[in-house]
């Protein structure tokens, strides 16, 4: 501190560079939180929307004493497709492997890519509806005017709380592009 002025100025510049580096690294850290968060959600199974669920062999025991109605719902968000379930609802036994089909049609004269996001009602039923196969695991690209039938295979976990008699499985298709429909 009793050092000559140019030595202090030099020490100041070195510290400036170090602190600027810390700031730059912390900017990167903000972005690093994104994959970190996804990994944590995946490991803890908090937000498992787009991967197949692990269905343990013990869970395939079918509970024939109980019937739960599954309702199928289909929506699109700012996407010129028609999207519907081929049946509106189906009664299932917990533990039973169930196949259903949805249908999408591209009404535009250009190819469009969409991604379906599932949601569940009531919300707490989400963790009991195990999807083995689903069109929501990948995005779908449709040629102009193309019609495609899409399968969903799921098992309802027999541990589903007894007070839930109806579960709604709802899908919404979003266009995969910038938010104004420009290709991303």
């Amino acid at each position: 501190m009793s050092a000559p002025a140019h030595a202090v100025a030099r020490a100041n510049r070195i510290l400036l560079r170090k602190l600027a580096l810390v700031a730059a690294l912390m900017f990167g850290f903000g972005f690093a939180l994104v994959p970190f968060y996804e990994k944590i959600c995946q490991v803890t199974g908090i937000r498992n929307l787009l991967q197949p669920d692990q269905v343990a062999a013990a869970n395939t025991q079918v509970d024939r004493s109980r019937v739960v109605t599954i309702e199928f719902d289909a929506n699109t968000q700012r996407l010129p497709w028609t999207f519907k379930a081929l049946e509106s609802h189906r009664p299932v036994h917990p533990g039973e492997i169930t196949h259903v089909q949805y249908e999408i049609r591209n009404t535009l004269d250009r190819p469009v890519t969409g991604q379906a996001i599932p949601s569940y009602g009531p919300q707490r039923a989400a963790q009991y509806l195990k999807k083995i196969e689903c069109f929501c695991f990948q995005s779908q690209t449709l040629a102009p005017g193309e019609v495609r039938r899409l399968p969903v295979v799921f098992v309802l976990d027999p541990a589903l709380p007894a007070d839930i008699g109806t579960v709604t499985l709802s899908y919404t298709f979003f266009e995969v592009a910038g938010r104004d429909g420009k290709p991303g």
Partner: peptide, 23 residues
Amino acid sequence: LVAVMPVLAGAVTMTLTDRHFGT
């Protein structure tokens, strides 16, 4: 401040690219 202001800058930058650049 040096540790956390850049994180906020990152968060609003992500919002910006979500809005305009299709992320």
